[in-house]
Simulated scan of single mutants.
Amino acid sequence: MLEKVNRMNELYDTYQELLTSKQKVYFELYYQDDLSLSEIAEQFEVSRNAVFDNIKRTGKLLEDYEDKLQLLNKREAREKIIDQMMLHTSDEQLVKWMNELQSLD
């Protein structure tokens, strides 16, 4: 379960600007603030099932964005390559540039 939560949060960090404000609010309350479906439903005066459907659709949408755009996978691949480069170089300027590259993500 923790892996799924981490994955959803990484996808959210990458693609949140493509979501509606309602999707963002429900998603953040559920995955980041750890509220239950019932607590969210009560707060917005909607059914628990409506909250569940919204969060489920939002998760699928985030996965679809990643399937098509691969931004998260590409970032992870870049980070691995930079980590390997940093292990095998002693050039201070090169290490500085690699650190700058990592900070862009």
Rank of each mutant, 00 (worst) to 15 (best):
V51A: 06
D34P: 00
L61F: 15
E76K: 13
N6M: 05
A41I: 14
E63H: 05
Q32I: 14
D13L: 10
Y15R: 01
K56L: 08
E10V: 04
Q70E: 13
K68G: 04
L61G: 04
L19T: 01
L29W: 10
E76R: 12
S103Y: 06
D33V: 04
Y65R: 09
L104R: 13
E45M: 12
Q16W: 12
S90M: 02
M8H: 03
K60F: 08
R48M: 10
K80V: 01
Q70S: 07
I81G: 01
M8W: 00
D34R: 11
L72Q: 11
L69P: 02
S90N: 10
M86I: 07
D33G: 04
L19Y: 03
L101E: 13
D53S: 09
Q43F: 09
R75S: 05
V51N: 05
L18I: 04
S90E: 10
T20A: 09
E45C: 07
E100R: 11
L72R: 07
Y26V: 00
D67M: 09
I55Y: 04
D13M: 10
V95L: 13
D64W: 00
D34L: 13
K60M: 08
Y26K: 02
Y31T: 00
M8F: 02
Q43D: 09
V95N: 08
E76V: 04
E92L: 09
L72E: 08
E3C: 04
L69N: 06
L69H: 06
V5M: 08
L37I: 15
N6F: 12
V46Q: 09
L62F: 00
E10I: 04
I82D: 05
N73W: 04
L35V: 05
N73K: 14
E10Q: 09
L19P: 01
V5G: 01
S36G: 10
E39Y: 04
S103L: 06
N49D: 11
A77T: 10
L19N: 03
Y26Q: 02
R78G: 03
M85R: 06
E42F: 15
K80G: 00
E3M: 07
N9L: 06
Y26E: 00
L71M: 14
Y26I: 01
S38N: 14
K68S: 13
M1H: 10
L62P: 08
Q70F: 05
L71C: 11
L61Y: 12
M85N: 07
E45T: 15
E66A: 02
Y15D: 01
G59H: 01
L104E: 11
E39R: 13
K74Q: 14
W97M: 08
M1L: 15
Q23H: 03
K4T: 15
K74Y: 08
L18D: 14
Q102C: 08
R57P: 05
R7K: 15
D34K: 11
R75L: 04
L18Y: 10
I82H: 03
H88Y: 11
A41V: 09
N73H: 10
K74H: 13
N54D: 07
A77E: 13
M85D: 06
L87P: 05
K68C: 06
Q23N: 03
L2R: 15
R7M: 14
N99S: 05
S47T: 08
D83L: 06
N54K: 13
L72D: 06
I40V: 15
R57A: 14
L11F: 01
H88E: 15
L87A: 07
Y65S: 02
V95Q: 13
K56C: 03
M1G: 15
D83N: 12
A41C: 09
M1A: 11
T58C: 09
D105Q: 12
L101W: 08
